[in-house]
């Protein structure tokens, strides 16, 4: 053991350094978010609970019932029932959904979206079984105004732009080190 090391050992220097750090953190701001009172901002395009998009003019569901979403869904949790000329039931088992967002990508008609709602816990299974009505009302609740349009523009992928070079692409503009 060298002398330096001995001094380091008996003075507990590394522990004191650690303690200085914890003490400085003691006086720094905490990062806790008091959840039900405060909420962290949700990034746009968050993959939360579903909504069925409404036709901008008629206000009816855009869904035509092609069933592609039900086909692509890896957890097979979408059920589409049709009846003469209309979609009679469109149901999503929220408890089975893994929020992969494939249904949105598969739908050629832009009829289903994922909203920012992540607070849908409930005591009964029925309430977590999303029917067409609930999904449509989700649209009004979470995609008001032209938020829905924005959503489709940015998160309904792919678009032709993804296969070519768009003019305005995010690039690093800072200083290079």
């Amino acid at each position: 053991m060298t002398f330096k090391k001995f001094i380091k050992t008996v003075t507990f220097i590394e522990i004191l350094k650690g303690m200085a750090l914890t003490l400085s953190r003691f006086f720094s701001r905490s990062v806790t978010i008091q959840y039900p009172d405060e909420r962290r901002p949700i990034a746009p395009g968050f993959r939360g609970q579903h909504a069925l998009a409404k036709h901008p003019q008629t206000g009816e569901a855009k869904c035509v019932g092609c069933g592609l979403c039900a086909t692509i869904c890896p957890s097979q949790c979408i059920h589409v029932f049709r009846e003469k000329g209309k979609v009679s039931r469109y149901e999503i088992e929220v408890l089975r959904c893994i929020y992969c967002g494939f249904c949105v990508e598969a739908c050629p008609y832009g009829a289903v979206v994922l909203t920012e709602n992540y607070e849908y816990s409930d005591y009964s299974k029925e309430n977590l079984y999303m029917t067409k009505e609930k999904l449509l009302s989700n649209w009004d609740k979470y995609m008001p105004g032209n938020k829905g349009e924005e959503y489709f523009k940015r998160f309904w992928r792919p678009m032709s732009g993804d296969f070519e070079t768009p003019s305005q692409q995010p690039m690093f503009r800072g200083k290079r080190s």
Partner: peptide
């Protein structure tokens, strides 16, 4: 981040990728 080139983000392979929505 520094070297990020401009360009497409999906391969032009229509058989293996989803098709552009627009």
């Amino acid at each position: 981040i520094e070297k990020l080139p401009p360009g497409p983000i999906m391969a032009d392979a229509p058989k293996f990728t989803l098709h552009p929505k627009d």
